[in-house]
Nucleic acid binder design. Sequence first.
DNA 1: ATAATATGTTAGACGTTTCTAACTTTAATT
DNA 2: AATTAAAGTTAGAAACGTCTAACATATTAT
Lengths: 222, 222
Amino acid sequence: MASQTEENYLKSLFLLANSKGEINLTDLSKMLEISIPTANSMVNKLHEKGLLNYEKYKPLVLTAKGKKEAALIIRKHRLTEMYLVEIMGFGWEQVHEIAEQIEHINSNAFFDRMDELLSFPTIDPHGSPIPDKNGKISWKSYDKLSECKAGQTVKLAALTHSSSDFLKFLNSKGLSLGLKLKIHSIEAFDKSMIVSYHNHKQEQFSQMVSERLLVETTNPNL
Amino acid sequence: MASQTEENYLKSLFLLANSKGEINLTDLSKMLEISIPTANSMVNKLHEKGLLNYEKYKPLVLTAKGKKEAALIIRKHRLTEMYLVEIMGFGWEQVHEIAEQIEHINSNAFFDRMDELLSFPTIDPHGSPIPDKNGKISWKSYDKLSECKAGQTVKLAALTHSSSDFLKFLNSKGLSLGLKLKIHSIEAFDKSMIVSYHNHKQEQFSQMVSERLLVETTNPNL
DNA sequence: ATAATATGTTAGACGTTTCTAACTTTAATT
DNA sequence: AATTAAAGTTAGAAACGTCTAACATATTAT
Ligand SMILES: [Mn+2]
Ligand SMILES: [Mn+2]
Ligand SMILES: [Mn+2]
Ligand SMILES: [Mn+2]
């Protein structure tokens, strides 16, 4: 239905809406690395197709239909990333570029089979939720490591950013999802943390890093 | 480099050249289901790009560069088909449509990994050769079953056509590549054959069928 | 050899997606 | 409130891939 280009716009609109409140043309054009007038003309087109609510000079808001289409593309993207890591043996830093292309493949059977071979995963290799076949996402609320206290033990659950460079950095520190992290101390001045985890007695994470790590706090009340 | 559209043209030109002698615009436009003027304009473009030798009103002939590019796309197509069948469990009648899309994915790592997981296959699920990374194809010469004699025992090695309908027909007859076929008799009038094979004591193949089956004759001289 | 048919080319148009340049509206500063 | 800056819109153009209609060339049949 939607062209590859339209799909990329929908996906960006969806992702932007979930990280910022109101989306404007400037955000969209930056994310897609296109000029503002180009974004403007596509926005008009998506509006005419009933995928986006839009009035001149007002923020961009996906319709229910637009949100669902977007979520289904993100589903294909994240299923693909999971497949590439779990079945094909790629590193989590290698899969985004490939998934960016495969997400546009038109074949239910193909993605259903991936899903099956992965035993119906709910998160991708970076801890982001995989929307279900109806485009529904079950959001889990994680805490940023940077907002935890000294003494806490937490589990690394997801990432706020998944650039290849950041993922390579995490590899170099022996970090992967699911690891238990113990927070030993937090430097008041720069908020850097001293943490320990499997095979790592003492590592220092700058705030830049701890802000990008999402953790589950093992709640003693449950 | 080449767009998805250009890639599909190159592939068609390559495949046509290997099944007919001289290719003309009409053949090309039929294969791609586009109008003749559209094919004509793309032919001019490919010529300008040095992928096709072309003079007005003359047959279409790929250059060495064009042939190599085409072979590498066919490599991706056939590797994908093999992967879908062998690793993902699809039937040989289901994979062409998906491969038609995945062949345009730009990622050496992705196809190299498929290749590796398949242990570097040389034929696809329909018995067609997979070009190597340099675009070289090692052609094997098979015989059409229709040209074999009564009494011969041969091995089903490949197909001349792989339409989904034909593949479903073969499924219904319990036929797959590698099967040994014994030719019991050939009806002189319509060239239909009575053959037997694993779990099938007696099946009749019309000439329409036997022409589409390529076999290896187990040569007693070797 | 002429006529009929098949094949190929050119011209002109359209939808998509992109751009830059010029202009307008809204938001932020002073 | 007036000015400046940021954000958004419009106009006009280009490349790509497609089409139909009209015309030209090559091949085949009579
Ligand atoms: Mn990704
Ligand atoms: Mn994409
Ligand atoms: Mn195929
Ligand atoms: Mn294709």
